[in-house]
Design a binder for these strands. Structure first.
Ligand SMILES: [Mn+2]
Ligand SMILES: [Mn+2]
Ligand SMILES: [Zn+2]
Ligand SMILES: [Zn+2]
Lengths: 138, 138
DNA sequence: AGAACCAATGCAACGGAAGTGCATTTATTG
DNA sequence: CAATAAATGCACTTCCGTTGCATTGGTTCT
């Protein structure tokens, strides 16, 4: 409780009741989630509020967006010490085609790629798709 | 003309007038394109027809879809000898944040990634974002 | 405490893009 | 030519992200 408030304040985000709830939801969840997921978890909350809360969280380095190729944006809590407001943390993401869940593989960074002359890379997105550990039964 | 017809027939796609036009458009274009692009290029054609034509083309290995993270699906003609109906051609794509164009870097394959135990990769998508050669002025 | 102010929330509506059902036209086959 | 199948066009739907604006709630200043 108090801890979450501190965390938010440290990131310059006012710890409102709503925001604390949302943060809690995210912290308990191990995998990534979509706006709709969180919307279903909190019947009370308005979609827009959740949307803007996540946006605020993102702008202040609390969560990061994930584009896993499903067409719906996913979010995940940033790791401790992740400073993705300043520079991107280019870890890869895995999307399971069986359970449809997307996970951050924060240990696995996107390898450096040599581009043709003239191309300047500033950002990268690598998504692997297949069967996750839970679904592969191992 | 006749050549395009042959190409389509070889891929088991009936060479209708519309399809030949669309193929021609794609062949002239060097970069990838969205459904809307092609829609604007052919005032006459209905969006659904274009949509389904591209779908047919994709199912028969004439074009491949590209998810460049912009939210709108891009398409590009497959290379000669590309057999992406059978197995994915996992080359990377580059999206320029200046001119907003996406290009296939067919020479650059997505490197193999070691995943944690239990994860089975079947597909991959790697998109680099930044400044393209045209826009970097080199 | 009360007034003034700003941030957060909620409701409604918009817009882009993908996708589907069905009628109509066009091509293919017997 | 008739019968059949494929391709095209129109209308409509759904999904998701996004914005405008009114309302609520909390903070600060007098
Ligand atoms: Mn992540
Ligand atoms: Mn490509
Ligand atoms: Zn799974
Ligand atoms: Zn460019």
């Amino acid at each position: 409780m108090k801890e979450i408030e501190k965390t938010l304040e440290n990131k310059n985000v006012r710890p409102t009741a709503m925001r604390i709830l949302i943060y809690k939801y995210m912290a308990e969840k191990k995998i990534t989630f979509a706006l709709t997921d969180i919307e279903n978890a909190f019947i009370k909350a308005d979609r827009t509020t959740l949307y803007r809360t996540l946006k605020t969280f993102e702008e202040n380095g609390i969560v990061h967006q994930i584009d896993d190729g499903t067409g719906t944006t996913k979010y995940a809590l940033c790791e401790l010490g992740c400073n993705c407001e300043i520079e991107q943390d280019l870890h890869l993401h895995f999307h399971c085609s069986n359970c449809n869940e997307t996970v951050c593989l924060t240990e696995h960074k996107i390898p450096h790629i040599n581009l043709p002359d003239g191309y300047i890379a500033e950002d990268a997105n690598l998504v692997l798709k297949g069967i996750c550990e839970k679904c592969s039964g191992q």
